[in-house]
Design a protein around this nucleic acid. Sequence first.
DNA 1: CGGCTTTTTGTGCGAGCGGTCAAAAAGTCC
DNA 2: GGACTTTTTGACCGCTCGCACAAAAAGCCG
Lengths: 199, 199
Amino acid sequence: MARTGRPRAFDKDEALERALLLFWSRGYGETSVQDLVDALALERGSLYGAFGDKRQFYLAAVRLYWDTYERRLLAALEAGPVLPALREVLTHPARAQEYASDVGVPQGCMIGNTTAELVPQDDEAREIVARSHARFTRIVADALRRAQAGGEVTQAATPEAQAQLLLFTVQGLSLVSRAGLDTSAALAAVDALIDALRA
Amino acid sequence: MARTGRPRAFDKDEALERALLLFWSRGYGETSVQDLVDALALERGSLYGAFGDKRQFYLAAVRLYWDTYERRLLAALEAGPVLPALREVLTHPARAQEYASDVGVPQGCMIGNTTAELVPQDDEAREIVARSHARFTRIVADALRRAQAGGEVTQAATPEAQAQLLLFTVQGLSLVSRAGLDTSAALAAVDALIDALRA
DNA sequence: CGGCTTTTTGTGCGAGCGGTCAAAAAGTCC
DNA sequence: GGACTTTTTGACCGCTCGCACAAAAAGCCG
């Protein structure tokens, strides 16, 4: 099934990445199709032809966001002690805040943003978000299970409960940080949680 | 300065409360002025006359939301042991989920929703949100300080750090719960946190 | 009762939105 | 080189949005 016809003049993956940054920093509703057209330097028709409508485009960007995040999460947890890695994972959105003085720099976690903006009314978005939550807790719970067995993490709670608590904390930290964060206070809170997990 | 003129035909506070429920359940962007007009059973002109534009109307609703929340928070923490009260405070959004099968029932914490939807672009919203965060952590930290002194809560971390962690957790829980929550898993996570705070 | 002030009522408006479409352009394959 | 297929281009459409406004209505006060 060899494809013929005029070849696409832009890189689809690169366009999706750019769109991801735009959607991430402005959200779904505040990003107009015109904004995308301007930022991606392509015409409306090309965009619709390549990605379908705005909603599908956004959801594709969210999927790309999560895939990237999951890869980094796995890499951070796969080797070495778990607690320092988790501290890094939790702290990441807090320190991303430092760059946020620049215009257009993404704010918060895109999964969290999507949860707030689309989930109540969009079943497909809900599925993506719920799946991301499930994968996060599963990956983290697996790491915590190993760390409990190795004596690094307390067995006062199940790995699943601890992982769920960590999900709440990342999402909460990432959300609260949008309103301007006292970085040292946030770090102290994260440290308090990490300490509480220590065996 | 006695006021004269035609008296207002509706109760302003009651209208604000109704608007709060609508804004809470649908968010700012998804609630149109027409929706408000329909739900409040008044005409556009009356609405603009009484509350200014849509943004001011929304911000007034958020302020009302926070004032109500703060009152309940203070009441819950002012007497008795702190940890059970905190467990209640954290659990509240999780159990509110049970009612969410009904249409139009508010979802999540309105401060959190506002953070996600308006804060990046609206300085006035950011102020309201930041102020709410500050008051939450102050109130909770005060309660934790008392509880640390009374031997109920561990002194492994400062009351401020613990309060900040609780803020992250409430906000995260409230956000994540929008995507459909495994209630028992959420309760286990909250219990794990409460246990970790115990002296 | 008549002037004054405020609210009510309903229409109307300009702007911006997401999305469509037909013609032109640019490749591939026989 | 000519038929075919796909993408590009840019104009265009209908809709909904937040908001303004003018006339009518309703109460207070001298």
